[in-house]
Design a binder for these strands. Structure first.
Lengths: 348, 348
DNA sequence: CTGAAAGCGCTTACAG
DNA sequence: CTGAAAGCGCTTACAG
């Protein structure tokens, strides 16, 4: 029976060790760690060096005990999609643990925002992460304001002014995708629009329109069909598009669920994708690669967004009471991921 | 400009408050909190009452600082599916935060188990959560053993003996689903099997066989088709089944991805689901409800499993060095979720 | 079965 | 710009 080694992370170095090594007091080390003012540059350098040499990492428990400030961050979610949620969670968790903050996750049921928010508040959070589409909810924003808590929107390109936000430029991404389709030779591109209560839906449509007009392609209103971001709505939308007297040679769906549905419809009609019809999506969810052929789509760096959102939120919390920062906006790069659902239009 | 209220969770009660209220020392309160021995029952009751009255909750930071035991729990994942992962994450996060443990999440790339594990070890985790199928990896189990770390398998019904595990009874669930199909009137039920390196695959097949034999239905080998849990493999499997001279009236796929593919194939062949063909899955992933018609499937309580796995792991860590507990097994209830992809067989 | 003392590693006032 | 002291809320030996 193998006896378990005692592997307690042997005597991690403390603030005292660093102080001794640098020839200063613990107080000064603390100042350096916390980016405090009033440290001569030479002193600061010596401390930083000592930290490096001793491989020192502050003990978070001691930190929060002493400062009586545990840094609890709330994350409200609404399950738009599991893939999206898990990325938000992964990024948020990673950054929170690095920053020594605790992440408290609450589900927000459709018409019970108040309850979720109250649970969050009573658990003592110092700020809230709001992944889209929750950041577009007026009720939530108002509540946040009343509670006096800072919030950061994730994956929202057009959030309320009261919020700091991080996201991609949805319009630019949709424009890039449309340009890609145009380059392949497509001229009749069907567009499946998202629901009007999602800020992203309008922006994606706008990007599509812009690319078209840039290349001098006249827009044909019959090529725009309304969807609601659900797979089921994509079924109807694609059917409508492919029933047109002059059907499109490519379908650009505003999200992957609807694009996956478009592929299903094409197959049912005996059309090969991408030989007979090109279908592209948006979001790069798990569905994009479970479906056959895998979808060409736009990927948002969701976990990076979440990571950065945590940093921004912590800054906001630490700075508190100061000027109520006027909602910073941060844009991250998207990626066009080309897989196997796109190709040139069929030669007639 | 609304000034932020100072809402620091006003003077939460401490162990001292409780001690005073109960007329004992802080030490005794600590014993009660930690289920320590040597407390007279009457004393314990008084303390519990005081805790209730004062709404006392131990300060985790102080706790881990004092005990120099921060309780870090590692979670290794391998992205089988985002839905599964997010449930594991949600449950694990919830329970860890309740127990004052920190959750450290690491991704384990296909052939780089060693790296992921080393990162986990160097981050100082005290134990590891292993969601299926990672708990079936010999490399990981060996590493865990060498590191002397306790581990708990999640959603595994047939894990290694060295591990504690929590899961559902896959065979019983598959049997229940098959019985359900039989009750609807089906007699020719096609079965799409999972990959042989997944413990669950064999168990699910076994459950299917058992139900059949219980009802005295002869098994027809042509009705068993090999799949690999991917959507793409489901396409081929369903094609094979539906090309049979005497095709099945129902297809039971071992997971939702393959079931979704079966629906796609049926549609492509002009078959209506469920009127002409019943299709059921297993797992209740997001795909089950994005596809049309939504899938009848088996749901595992993944987030509950994850929650309990955390509790078990913490017990294991606290108990350490003691008898190396011989791998407890915990079975949770599954649910058969009936949606719209099943019905009686077509009348001929 | 119960308690008084010391200390975990940091930060917060307060001095200089 | 820097430091000595006290204390955050708990637990760990150690006594009784």
């Amino acid at each position: 029976m193998q006896r378990r080694p005692a592997r307690r992370k042997g005597a991690a170095s403390t603030i005292g060790d660093v102080a001794r090594h640098a020839g200063v007091s613990a107080m000064t080390v603390s100042r350096v760690i916390n980016d405090g003012p009033n440290v001569r540059d030479a002193t600061r350098q010596r401390v930083i060096e000592a930290i490096r040499v001793l491989d020192y990492a502050p003990n978070q428990a001691a930190r929060s005990l002493a400062s009586a400030q545990s840094l609890k961050i709330g994350l409200l979610y609404n399950n738009p999609s599991a893939a999206y949620l898990s990325e938000v969670l992964l990024g948020g968790l990673d950054q929170s643990s690095k920053a020594g903050a605790q992440l408290v996750v609450e589900k927000c049921e459709p018409d019970a925002e108040a309850e979720a928010l109250d649970r969050l508040l009573s658990s003592g959070v110092d700020g809230v992460l709001l992944p889209a589409p929750l950041c577009d909810s007026a009720a939530i924003l108002q509540w946040l304001d009343e509670a006096g808590l800072p919030g950061v929107a994730i994956a929202s390109s057009q959030p309320d002014d009261s919020l700091s936000a991080i996201g991609i430029d949805d319009a630019a991404a949709a424009r890039a995708m449309t340009l890609h389709l145009l380059e392949l030779g497509h001229r009749r591109i069907g567009f499946v629009q998202g629901p009007s209560d999602h800020a992203s839906a309008a922006l994606r449509r706008q990007g599509w329109l812009q690319a078209l007009s840039e290349r001098g392609i006249a827009t044909d209103d019959s090529l725009i069909v309304q969807g609601s971001y659900t797979y089921h709505s994509g079924l109807d939308a694609a059917d409508q598009l492919l029933s047109l007297p002059l059907p499109p040679t490519a379908i650009f769906a505003s999200n992957d669920d609807m694009a996956a549905a478009a592929i299903a419809v094409a197959h049912r009609r005996g059309l090969d994708v991408p030989r007979d019809l090109t279908v592209v999506g948006f979001d790069d969810t798990a569905l994009a690669t479970t479906v056959w052929p895998p979808l060409t789509t736009i990927r948002q760096p969701v976990s990076d967004m979440s990571r950065q959102a945590v940093s921004i939120l912590i800054d906001l919390i630490r700075r508190r009471s100061d000027e109520p920062s006027p909602g910073a906006r941060e844009l991250l790069d998207f990626t066009l991921i080309q897989r196997q659902s796109d190709g040139p239009p069929p030669v007639i």
